[in-house]
Amino acid sequence: MKRRTMILGGTAMVALGACSSSKFKRYNGPEVTYVVVNKSQRRMMLLHHNRVLEDYPIKLGFAPVGHKAFEGDGRTPEGLYRIDRRNPNSRFHLSVGIDYPNARDIETARAMGKSPGGDIFIHGQKDPRQKEKTDWTWGCIAVTNKEIEDVYAMVRDGTPILITP
């Protein structure tokens, strides 16, 4: 009987330990009212009104200069957008979606005879054991997996995001 109790107790401890390392964090601080991305400085700030709550280094699309014009151009969009969705099963740990393309983006791409693309996210790393030294995404904004866990917990759908050159 003692052996069975020890095995069950050990199994419960392992199960509880796994729960504490969840990628889904809780956040009880001030509301994030705005996200600002400065592409040239490679920084993303989470703001509560005019106060910076968090400031993260970022990686961008592999062709970081300029506004995203069409699918596959490797650029990260510029302008005012909103966080509009979240993906808990992202290939990049976790991700929050940006509502690109807007009507202007669609019009610009169509004038070039191209698709504007979509699926622009703030997401984690493709391989957390590797430190990316250069911009590597197809137009998304990348942070570390630990940082995307914080962003995922702090930023709500509907939050405005300003992406500047």
Score class of each variant (00 low, 15 high):
R3D: 11
R4M: 13
I7C: 07
L8V: 13
G9F: 11
G9P: 02
T11W: 03
A12S: 05
A15D: 01
A15L: 15
A15T: 09
G17F: 10
G17R: 09
A18G: 06
K25P: 00
R26W: 13
Y27Q: 01
N28E: 13
N28W: 06
N28C: 04
G29Q: 10
G29M: 07
P30L: 08
P30G: 08
E31P: 04
E31S: 10
E31T: 14
V32A: 11
V32W: 03
T33Y: 03
Y34E: 15
Y34C: 13
Y34A: 14
N38M: 01
R43S: 04
M44W: 02
M45A: 13
L46P: 04
L46F: 03
L47E: 07
H48I: 07
H48A: 14
H49G: 05
N50R: 09
N50I: 06
R51G: 00
R51Y: 02
R51K: 11
V52D: 04
V52Q: 02
E54M: 09
E54S: 10
K59Y: 03
K59M: 03
G61T: 10
F62I: 13
A63N: 15
H67S: 14
K68W: 01
A69I: 14
A69K: 15
A69G: 08
F70W: 15
E71S: 15
G72E: 00
G74Q: 14
E78M: 13
E78G: 05
R82S: 10
R82P: 00
I83K: 07
R85T: 13
R86M: 10
R86D: 12
P88I: 11
N89K: 12
N89Y: 13
R91G: 12
L94R: 15
S95G: 14
P101Y: 00
A103Q: 02
D105Y: 06
D105K: 03
A109M: 08
A109Q: 07
G113A: 09
K114S: 05
G117W: 03
G118F: 05
F121G: 02
H123K: 02
G124V: 05
Q125Y: 01
Q125E: 12
K126G: 06
P128W: 06
K131A: 06
E132F: 00
E132P: 00
W138Q: 15
W138E: 15
W138H: 15
G139D: 10
G139V: 10
C140I: 12
I141Q: 02
N145A: 00
E147A: 13
E147P: 00
E149S: 07
D150W: 05
V151M: 07
V151L: 13
A153N: 05
V155P: 04
R156H: 15
G158M: 04
T159H: 10
I161Q: 02
I163T: 01
I163G: 02
